[in-house]
Design a protein around this nucleic acid. Structure first.
Lengths: 226, 226
DNA sequence: ACCGCTTTGTGCACGTGTTCACAATCGCGT
DNA sequence: ACGCGATTGTGAACACGTGCACAAAGCGGT
């Protein structure tokens, strides 16, 4: 999973907490699965188990969006999907640019999650001119020199950085300079951005290291049991 | 960033908390950068800024591993790198298998973070026989039928799942059945695993949706300011 | 040897997130 | 119309993470 890079900007009154927001997409996915299976209503018990959380936490999370369940019955699947989508802002449409068309950028471009649910990949951007013009998953690769004009033209609000670590900050600065206010960073660096920009970081190496820690803990425990 | 899928298994006495463990790899990376720049000692102030956290939090995190700083001076970069590495269990070696050689599996195989720091990719595994034998980033692709024997032979403890969503749970079950105790899941599903297995999840779509939420919040605020 | 400057390590207070337990509420059968 | 079983929504207790503020402790200059 990924972690926010910046400390919480003061939580507004009545706002949904950050941890809750992070869980809503999971509920949404599970609910979509139920909907496709033809399930019409779910209890917090069932939904919570499918999402891997406790029922109480689930109900409290959902209660922050409003009272969309009916007591004694549960939640209407379709209606809850709509409400969560709305709370997450998925009823609007967002244009995304992916900068860096290496292996990772390639994978991201092909990722199904991008096309659906309100996200449209406006362009793939790379510094290597030999890749420019190539079409990946229906999207054209364009040169990084055009970054500013692409962002302006498509009203891009979300930038995905999949460049090598060395270029990430520069790319980020350029994105921010032309109005991008959310950044998803795959490069292994800590980006510095102005206050109002949100950065989320996905870092392979960090995930592995966290797993390594738990592995080690397990072996120590096992030793201790001998 | 990514998130643990399961609730905290009871925190052991004297253990390092989960949030701290998640930050240690960041400190480690920043420290490595300092070391390469020839910096010998850093203060909590400097290190914290580079890592994007507050100085107090940083010191408290580090204090959980022991007293490795010297007052009035700061932390010895090399020594601290060693201590964090040891705390994370990176002084040991871990064998990893990557299951699913699509775009994402390809990207992961090529990712530099895997080769270094105690992680060795034992094999790439795919269900498509036409890919078997291919060599990616110096690692051979082998068929999923051999999964169990590969895991046993290389004493694999960490499995990376980069398969389509539909196959993820099955692959996970097989990995767990032959002794893998840590799983890094890129497939957009909630895996169910036995108690002692750690699962971490990296989910593109979830990250985007979280960013979408913040984007929406910003535009609402902007509207309100008109 | 001492003093003052710097920086760590940490006790304490605060805020946030989680869990429990239960009252409020709904549908349904009679 | 009414009562019963089921399930939500939530107040209150609790656990955990964060940030402040300061005492403890090292270094260097005199």
């Amino acid at each position: 999973m990924s972690v926010t890079q910046l400390p919480h900007r003061g939580t507004r009154r009545g706002a949904i907490s950050e941890v809750t927001v992070a869980r809503l997409p999971v509920y949404l996915r599970v609910l979509t699965g139920f909907a496709e299976s033809g399930v019409a209503t779910v209890s917090s018990e069932t939904l919570a188990q499918a999402a891997g959380v406790g029922p109480a936490k689930l109900r409290k999370d959902l209660s922050h969006l409003g009272s969309y369940g009916t007591r004694g019955v549960g939640y209407d699947v379709d209606y809850l999907i709509y409400q969560i989508s709305r709370a997450l802002g998925l009823t609007q449409h967002y244009s995304v640019v992916i900068v860096g068309v290496g292996n990772l950028g390639h994978a991201l471009a092909g990722y199904a999650g991008f096309g659906t649910r309100g996200f449209r990949v406006a362009a793939l951007i790379d510094a290597d001119r030999s890749r420019v013009g190539e079409v990946i998953a229906g999207v054209e690769v364009r040169h990084v020199d055009e970054l500013e004009s692409i962002v302006a033209e498509h009203e891009v609000s979300i930038g995905v950085i999949a460049t090598p670590a060395g270029n990430a900050q520069e790319v980020c600065d350029r994105l921010v300079a032309c109005g991008v206010t959310s950044v998803l960073n795959f490069a292994p660096v800590v980006l510095s951005v102005p206050e109002q920009v949100d950065v989320r970081k996905v870092d392979l190496s960090i995930e592995l290291q966290i797993l390594a820690f738990h592995e080690q803990r397990k072996s120590v425990v096992t030793e201790g049991a001998l």
